[in-house]
Design a protein around this nucleic acid. Structure first.
Lengths: 232, 232
DNA sequence: GTTGAAACCTGTTTTATTGCATAATTACTT
DNA sequence: AAGTAATTATGCAATAAAACAGGTTTCAAC
């Protein structure tokens, strides 16, 4: 089972990195690559810990978040399969600056960062891969600062819904978000209290922008939602 | 004059990058390196433009900012000499996501990003330089998201003052911040209105945490300020 | 089925922050 | 030196969002 997963993982899922490696490098990765399973809401790593591994989400969904003032939590980034995470702190020579946890049951692969570092030294394309990833993430973080601080509550929630849509996509009906998160997570993503996330979500339902059935959210009027996200 | 500046710049100011280059690379940089002067408050580049250059602040102070909702501005990062900026968008293959402007009269050097890209391909240490820079900036941005969204007004302003202290340091008296910015800039840095920046600053003066004389700010009680920044 | 816990919902109260108006001060400009 | 613009300062009304409190639904465990 693990062997079969490895084959698939390394040839398909990790293709973005895989493609730039030679045979010797591939051999070293196969030997060091370890598969981990995480349950729903289980923590993968915590802020303050020493970063040792490159994490690669193979299946499931993961959130990166920071515990802030007075028990409040801010979700910083969402990870989908197949994406890499947990490498920033190692590169910055810092401890983890945020925590990671599984949204739902997830499968994650790890590689020791020492090995990654070594491979970057030998393979310039790998260096470019991380420069590119870091640069895109940094741009996203800067945009997020302005969105979260300047937009009103409706704008922030609309923005969050759009992000979920763009990041995880729709189910086969082309309406329902392919992620099912608690109101609290939605609130922590949009910088508001859970009460206000619920209230504002109801507002959107009344305005026929979305439908809500428990954690199932369907988007009926995406253009209007994008408008609210932009000018709200 | 330019020649003398170039000598000094390339051997001292750019030392961090300079040190990892061989003679041929140094030659190519000297040929392509161009010096630019910016007046106080002059824009260096604007959000939406195509990134072409690596910018290197040689003298002065620069702010990176984003124009947000309803004419509001958010200052994202402060640049001091000698620091590099403007490369993220190029690496991400995006247009500029934020603008840069000089706080005060500043001297900036540029290198074409195509040359930088070329040198990264040939010199792995340069790749590491940018991986390191990007990683640290990304960590800072994540922390900033939580600071700006969760802290109250006093905490945000105290935080801003501490950032200014850590980033630009003190004058020779070991009290006065080595940067003189308008209340409006202080507000845009701390995510508040100018009125509130003024009000809150006065509050700090009354509490004998700081003294203010026009744009001259001296820090009297740094530990208390850090406390407010942390728990405010 | 009953119990208990967690998640969800909603109305009211309270508070932090903005918006606005006005005035005083300072910095520029001619 | 006078006049104008920009910045700093402060009080008060308006308001967005949080805090609180009470209630309902959902769902898993026994």
């Amino acid at each position: 089972m693990i062997k079969r997963t490895l084959d698939r993982v390394l040839s398909e899922d990790m293709s973005e990195i895989w493609a730039v490696l030679d045979n010797d490098e591939k051999r070293r990765i196969i030997d060091a690559f370890t598969i981990h399973h995480f349950k729903k809401n289980q923590r993968i790593y915590a802020e303050g810990e020493e970063p040792e591994y490159l994490w690669c989400l193979l299946q499931g969904k993961v959130k990166k978040f920071k515990d802030g003032v007075g028990g409040r939590v801010q979700i910083l980034r969402l990870i989908r399969s197949v994406q890499y995470f947990g490498y920033r702190a190692y590169f910055a020579k810092e401890r983890y600056n945020s925590s990671a946890a599984a949204f739902e049951a997830s499968i994650v692969g790890t590689l020791p960062m020492t090995l990654v570092e070594d491979m970057i030294n030998k393979n310039n394309k790998l260096a470019w891969f991380f420069i590119h990833e870091l640069s895109r993430n940094l741009g996203g973080a800067d945009t997020r600062i302005v969105n979260l601080t300047q937009k009103h509550i409706r704008g922030r929630l609309a923005e969050a819904l759009i992000v979920l849509r763009d990041h995880y996509g729709f189910e086969d009906d082309n309406l329902t978000l392919r992620i099912y998160m608690a109101r609290e997570d939605l609130a922590n993503l949009s910088n508001m209290t859970t009460s206000n996330a619920i209230r504002t979500l109801s507002g959107f339902v009344n305005e026929k922008l979305i439908t809500v059935d428990g954690r199932k959210i369907s988007i009926l009027n995406e253009p209007e939602l994008r408008k609210i996200s932009k000018y709200g």
